[in-house]
Simulated assay, not measured.
Amino acid sequence: MQRGRRIAFDYGDVRIGVAVCDPDGILATPLTTLKTSDSKLKFQLAQIFTEYEPIHIYVGKPSHMDGRESESAVKAANFAKELGEMASCPVTLIDERLSTVTATRGMRDSGVNSKDARASIDQAAAVEILNFALEIEKNKG
């Protein structure tokens, strides 16, 4: 597996959860939550890319459980395209059908009310996406 940081995004209509991994691709951690409608969003993304210098970017692609593409998947694909125009590394869509459900369950199991922790859930969903992407990379190598 190539050494370098990867970044994952859980794109939503209101918020975008962001996660990053260490250069060895071992540990994915929550980074931040961005507001989709923020006028400074592109600037914030550019700052993240400058600071972390990712070698690969992953964007969660929400599909229906039967595999059909959702309206949200189209929005995520458009966001991935924008990231591809900004970043100097590959951008890949990753199936994220259960990332938010898994993140919400994990937060609830640790005693956190999901309504009070929406931004944290978005970050945790991005961690789930990144962990899945890292497993795919490790299995290819």
Rank of each mutant, 00 (worst) to 15 (best):
S72K: 12
D22Y: 06
S114A: 06
D24G: 12
P23H: 09
T29G: 07
I121F: 03
D116C: 00
S88Q: 14
D122P: 00
H56I: 06
S120H: 03
T102N: 14
A103V: 10
F9W: 03
S39V: 11
E71F: 12
H56C: 12
Q47L: 13
T104P: 00
A124L: 15
Y58G: 02
I94K: 10
K40Q: 15
G4L: 04
A87N: 09
A124C: 05
A119R: 10
H64I: 01
A87F: 07
G17D: 04
C89N: 09
M86T: 04
I57R: 01
P90I: 08
D66W: 08
A46E: 15
I129L: 01
D66H: 06
A124M: 14
G67M: 12
T32A: 15
A80P: 01
D38A: 15
T100C: 08
I7K: 02
T33L: 03
L31W: 08
L83F: 03
I16G: 04
I57N: 02
R97M: 07
R118N: 01
A77Y: 01
F9H: 02
G67P: 10
T32H: 06
Q47C: 13
G60I: 06
V127L: 03
T29Q: 13
A73H: 10
P54L: 12
D22N: 14
R108T: 15
D13I: 01
A126P: 03
F43K: 14
T29E: 12
H64S: 05
D66K: 04
R3N: 05
A126S: 11
S63Q: 12
G111V: 08
G84A: 11
G12S: 06
G67L: 11
D24L: 14
R15V: 01
T102D: 13
S99R: 04
I57S: 02
D95Q: 11
A103R: 01
E71G: 13
S110M: 15
V91P: 05
S88C: 09
R118G: 00
L130V: 03
S99L: 06
A80C: 08
K138V: 04
T102L: 14
S120M: 12
R68L: 10
K42N: 15
A77E: 14
Q47I: 02
Y58D: 00
M65N: 07
A87I: 03
K115A: 11
L41G: 09
S72G: 15
Y11S: 08
V20L: 09
Q47T: 13
E51P: 00
L83K: 05
I129P: 01
V127D: 03
S63Y: 10
S72F: 04
F79R: 07
F9S: 04
F49G: 11
P62H: 05
L93G: 09
I94G: 07
D10L: 08
N131V: 06
T33M: 12
E53T: 14
N139T: 12
V20D: 01
V20H: 01
R118D: 04
G84I: 07
D122H: 15
V112Q: 02
R118Y: 00
P62W: 05
F132A: 15
D10Q: 05
A103T: 06
P90T: 13
H56S: 11
E71P: 07
L27K: 10
R15F: 02
G12Q: 07
D24C: 05
A80Q: 04
T50Y: 12
L93K: 04
V20W: 00
D24P: 00
S70A: 15
A103L: 06
N139I: 09
G60E: 01
Q44E: 15
N139R: 15
D95Y: 11
